[in-house]
Amino acid sequence: MRQTARTLLAALPLFLLTACATTRDPVRNVGDAATLGMQEQRERSLADTDHWTLQGKLSVSDGKDSNSGSLTWRQDGERYEFTVRGPITGRTFRLTGGPDGADLEGLDGGTRHGADAESLMASTVGWQIPLGELKRWALGLRADTGPAEMTFGADRLPSRLIQDGWTVDYKTWDATRQPAMPARVFAEKAPYKVRLAIEDWSFAK
């Protein structure tokens, strides 16, 4: 069944792998006092942000196969709904769950259940996505899973975050928001890659 799912996903185009190119200043530094103060302020303002919706595109790769699609990610505290739709086939995969486990809909043979989102996606469609950490990384925050190393760009916004063996590059930011929010997020832990092209953020009040 996993092979069937991966075969279906392999039909999706790889447009996001090239569409996410950016010209953001690649200069990285550990940050001076002002830069670190800005980041601390961002982290304080977003620390309790766990009710939001992200709209955009997702691309995943295991070093051999790459797949992509449109993404709607709704986070409601510890519960989530992660929906990916193929741009050509229109096939939809919907991952939902929380502390009590995860369910993946859209596969041939019906819904699959797993203890957590990461292991369920890996065993069914071969996707390696650190969803628990990514929900914080997508906000430009460090996850609470262990030590993290962060560097900044010339705009004083995070440029790279290294945590749990993953390297997270922030390619572009939407500085029109207060606080600024990531717009392109590339996460890599060889051979796996996860790329987010974020088109819109909305936050529950």
Rank of each mutant, 00 (worst) to 15 (best):
R2T: 11
T4G: 08
L8I: 13
L9P: 07
A11P: 02
L12N: 08
P13T: 13
L14I: 08
L16Q: 02
L16I: 11
A19I: 08
T23R: 04
T23K: 02
R24M: 07
D25S: 04
D25W: 04
P26C: 10
R28A: 11
V30K: 13
A33I: 14
M38P: 01
Q39D: 11
E40P: 01
R42E: 07
L46Y: 03
W52A: 01
L58D: 01
L58G: 02
S61F: 15
S66Q: 04
N67R: 12
S68H: 04
G69I: 00
T72M: 13
E81H: 05
E81T: 14
E81P: 06
R85L: 02
G86H: 11
P87T: 12
I88G: 03
F93G: 10
R94G: 15
G97A: 06
P99L: 03
P99M: 04
P99T: 10
D100A: 06
D103Q: 14
G106C: 10
G106V: 08
L107K: 12
L107F: 15
D108G: 10
G109L: 02
R112W: 14
A115H: 03
A115T: 05
D116C: 05
A117L: 03
A117P: 02
E118S: 11
M121N: 01
S123D: 12
S123P: 06
T124E: 13
W127I: 13
Q128M: 13
P130W: 04
G132T: 15
E133F: 13
L134V: 05
R136H: 07
W137I: 00
L139M: 09
L141S: 01
L141F: 07
A143L: 07
D144A: 15
T145Q: 11
A148G: 05
E149K: 11
E149S: 14
G153P: 13
G153N: 03
A154N: 11
L157N: 07
L157A: 03
L157V: 01
S159M: 11
R160P: 01
L161V: 01
I162G: 08
I162V: 12
W166M: 01
W166S: 07
V168C: 02
D169P: 05
D169M: 09
Y170A: 00
W173I: 01
T176F: 05
T176G: 10
P179E: 09
M181C: 00
M181K: 04
P182K: 15
P182S: 09
V185A: 00
A187D: 00
A187M: 07
K189H: 10
Y192S: 13
Y192W: 09
K193W: 10
R195A: 13
L196K: 09
L196M: 15
W201N: 01
W201T: 00
W201R: 00
S202D: 11
S202F: 15
K205T: 01
